[in-house]
Computed example of a mutant assay.
Amino acid sequence: MPASDFRALPLSVIDFASVRPGQTVGEGLQDSVALAQKAEELGYERVWYSEHHNMPSIASSAPAVLMAHIAAQTSTIRLGSGGVMLPNHSPIVIAEQFGTLAELHPGRIDLGLGRAPGTDPQTLRALRREPSAAETFPDDVRELQAFLGDSPSDMARTRGIVAVPGRGTKVPLYILGSSLFGAQLAAAYGLPYAFASHFAPDALKQASAVYRERFQPSEQLSEPYMIAAVNVVADDDAARAEQELHWYRRQRVRLMAGRGRNFTDEELDMVMESAGGQQILHMISYTACGDGATVRDYLTEFAHRAGADELMIAPIGSSPERAHGSLEVLRRAWSD
C-alpha cells in the first residue's frame, strides 16, 4: 500500500471486555461501554466482541447481550461479534439474537463467526457442545444465512421455519479464522474474512493469499474483503508506550502460563525466558508500539503485508485511560 493511501484504510476495534486486576465484572463491562463511546467519538468503523468462556479476565461470554447494552449507549458506530463461536449454538438462536439487534439498531450490526469453542474441554462439555460440532460449521453458516435471508429456504433443516426477528435482516456475516480453513470457507461462500493475527500470526500471509485467489462473488460481497487484527500501544511519549508494552507482555505471560498461580517477579522473569514463555510472546508478534507516527508507519506496512482492506485494532493499556489514549494517538496520526 503506498504511503499516500493509508488514510483510506478503515480502522476498527476489537474489545475483549477485560476485567483488570482489582475490578468487578460490572466495572469491566462499563469500561467496554466507555471504549465503544470513545471509538465512536474518534471515528472508528466498528467494535467487535469475542465469545470466551471460563476466563476470569474476559467478560464477553455473551456477545449479543453485551452488544445490545452498548448499542443502546452509542448511536452510529457498528457493533459486532468477533466472534460468535457458532458450533456452541444452534443457527436459529443466533439468527434470532442478531435479527433482534438488527431490528433495534438498523445498519449497525455485524455477525462474525468462528468454529473454535472459545474455551477449555471441560467448559465445552458444560456448554453441551458435541465434540464433533465444528465439523458441521460450513453447513451451519449456510443455515444461518437462510434464516437471515428474505425468502423461505429449501434447505432440509430450515424448511418451514421462520426466524422472527431475523428473516429479511440480512445481517452481514464475516468468517473469522487463524488458519487456511477459514480463508477457504470465506472465499467459497463469498464472505468477508477476518484474520486473528493479533494472537495467531503465523498463517496470516498465506491465508490472505488463499482467500483472494479463491474468492467467489456472492449476494453479500462482490469482491474479497479482508480484515487483519493487530495489537497497538500508542502514546505521544514513545518511552511511555514501551513501558505499557512491557507491562502487557508480562501480564500476558502471567495469565497464560500461570493458570491462576501468582508468580513472583523473579519467577515471571524465568517463565518469560523459557520456551513456553517465548511461544506466548510470539503470539503477539504483530504489535505496533511507539508514538503516533511510528505506529502509523508500522500499521501501513502491516496492512500492505497482510493484504488487508481494514485493520482491527486491539488497544493495549494497563488502564482504560491508556487504552483510550492509544486509540486517540493513532486516530490523530492517521489523519495527519
Rank of each mutant, 00 (worst) to 15 (best):
residue 234 A to M: 07
residue 73 Q to E: 12
residue 278 Q to C: 02
residue 171 V to W: 00
residue 272 M to D: 00
residue 130 E to I: 03
residue 140 D to C: 05
residue 84 V to N: 05
residue 103 E to V: 13
residue 45 E to S: 15
residue 290 G to C: 06
residue 120 D to K: 07
residue 262 N to M: 09
residue 212 R to H: 10
residue 206 Q to M: 13
residue 213 E to L: 06
residue 32 S to E: 01
residue 261 R to I: 13
residue 111 L to A: 14
residue 83 G to R: 09
residue 171 V to L: 04
residue 22 G to M: 10
residue 27 E to Y: 03
residue 266 E to V: 14
residue 300 T to A: 12
residue 241 A to M: 02
residue 327 L to P: 11
residue 11 L to H: 01
residue 73 Q to N: 12
residue 319 S to R: 08
residue 77 I to L: 02
residue 314 A to E: 05
residue 67 M to N: 06
residue 147 F to N: 09
residue 256 M to W: 08
residue 168 G to W: 01
residue 335 S to L: 14
residue 196 A to Y: 03
residue 104 L to I: 08
residue 316 I to V: 15
residue 180 L to I: 14
residue 276 G to Y: 01
residue 6 F to S: 11
residue 80 G to H: 05
residue 236 D to L: 09
residue 17 A to F: 04
residue 139 D to C: 07
residue 99 G to R: 00
residue 32 S to N: 06
residue 183 A to Q: 06
residue 130 E to V: 06
residue 215 F to V: 08
residue 38 K to T: 14
residue 217 P to E: 02
residue 47 V to R: 02
residue 208 S to L: 07
residue 284 I to P: 00
residue 62 A to Q: 08
residue 111 L to H: 08
residue 216 Q to T: 15
residue 162 V to F: 02
residue 173 L to W: 03
residue 139 D to Q: 10
residue 124 L to D: 12
residue 60 S to F: 04
residue 132 S to G: 10
residue 330 L to D: 05
residue 272 M to K: 03
residue 155 M to A: 13
residue 104 L to A: 14
residue 85 M to D: 08
residue 57 S to H: 13
residue 161 I to N: 03
residue 329 V to M: 01
residue 161 I to A: 09
residue 40 E to N: 05
residue 147 F to C: 12
residue 326 S to A: 13
residue 130 E to S: 15
residue 302 F to V: 10
residue 297 D to S: 13
residue 223 E to P: 01
residue 227 I to K: 03
residue 136 T to Y: 02
residue 269 D to L: 09
residue 232 V to L: 05
residue 127 L to H: 06
residue 255 L to K: 04
residue 98 F to N: 07
residue 244 E to G: 14
residue 289 C to V: 14
residue 208 S to V: 10
residue 27 E to S: 13
residue 127 L to T: 13
residue 177 G to H: 10
residue 306 A to F: 04
residue 121 P to A: 11
residue 234 A to L: 08
residue 327 L to M: 10
residue 49 Y to G: 07
residue 184 Q to P: 06
residue 164 V to M: 09
residue 27 E to K: 13
residue 56 P to W: 07
residue 129 R to A: 14
residue 255 L to V: 12
residue 250 R to D: 00
residue 58 I to S: 01
residue 324 H to T: 13
residue 179 S to T: 14
residue 289 C to F: 00
residue 288 A to L: 02
residue 205 K to A: 15
residue 274 S to V: 00
residue 215 F to S: 05
residue 98 F to V: 12
residue 34 A to V: 00
residue 334 W to F: 10
residue 147 F to Y: 15
residue 61 S to F: 01
residue 63 P to V: 11
residue 284 I to D: 08
residue 155 M to K: 10
residue 329 V to Q: 02
residue 335 S to T: 14
residue 48 W to P: 01
residue 38 K to V: 11
residue 16 F to I: 13
residue 171 V to F: 00
residue 110 D to Y: 09
residue 71 A to K: 05
residue 254 R to P: 00
residue 23 Q to P: 07
residue 135 E to L: 15
residue 4 S to P: 06
residue 266 E to R: 07
residue 96 E to W: 04
residue 141 V to R: 05
residue 118 G to P: 07
residue 205 K to G: 13
residue 331 R to H: 09
residue 19 V to T: 12
residue 141 V to N: 07
residue 17 A to V: 15
residue 153 S to Q: 08
residue 30 Q to R: 11
residue 313 I to T: 11
